[in-house]
Amino acid sequence: MSGINRVKSLVFKNATPILIALLAVFVLIKMPVFFTISNLMSLGSQAAIWGLAAIGMTMLILTGVTDVSVGAQIYLGGVLVVRVYQATESMLLGLLCSMIVCMLVSAFNGYAIVKLGLPSMITTLAMQQVCNGLASIIIGRDSVIKMPDAFSKLGQSRLFNIPISVIIFLLLFLISVVVMNHTRFGRYVYAIGNNSDAIAASGVNVFRIREITFLVTGALCGLAGTINVSRIGGAQFGMGAQMEFSCMAAVVVGGTSMLGGSGNIIGTLLGVFVIASMDQLLRMFNVSIYLYNVFWGGVVLFTVSMDLLKKYQEKREREMRLATDRNS
């Protein structure tokens, strides 16, 4: 391999770490305040919300589908929590209600995509509309609902000075790492993205496994919705918008292939951190909202393209190796 090719190959294979390193150096010079504890904590408590959904999203993308309805599910779940709390003063009841509704929504997504074979992008896009609409109806004309202080206990309290939302996120993340790397379920999820036929022929109920990945995503969205409304102390029109995009970005930046099969859950933690940091930085640099959208779209396009370029590069290297083997 020539020098230039070797550099190219190294860049393709390590795109994410290189990106992070460049970003870190840039920030350290331009905006040292970013690295203060209080800033990191505030960043973390926001990221923990959609980070929860990103755990489920990783499982889905590993099996080769995507879900753009998670942001809307977080919105719907959160609105339900607020209304249930207003009626019963019970946070727990609100949480249960939110989780059950989101799981139903995801169960339907799963059934339509896995059993009926609808394209996941279209199905979940439609579901996003349904959930957004329902949530807005439930909010009604108020568009902002302020809740009493007691409501914010879950979202704003801290343990050892760490926001409780971050702790919940990290805890569930830890559990998901064990599940994905050490259980039957996790192993099947990785395998299904690679070769679903072989797994079905091994006597595994593939529909069941895939439906579970959807249910997990739904449950996590329900929980995220609850923490979200508690953290901001109420509900507001259109909250949760674009969270699905942050999720997707975190998963692909974390090295999981949109084509399914390859990647890992630990990468997603890294991805969540990178995306949350960039998000915070854009705000700190006061970037206009329009440029902000352009930036995020660009990041996802870039990462997904890198993933495919990496695949082509690997294929080319393999072909070249085979050709050398043959002719030597």
Partner: peptide, 30 residues
């Protein structure tokens, strides 16, 4: 196509059909 998950190692391929036998019942921990 239907026999192997080519990208995964031999160990995982061998145990796909018998994972329930070698994991903790209920939890599914292998």
């Amino acid at each position: 196509e239907e026999g192997l998950v080519l990208k995964m190692d031999i160990r995982r391929n061998l145990t796909f059909p018998i994972l329930d036998r070698i994991s903790v019942p209920g939890a599914g921990y292998v």
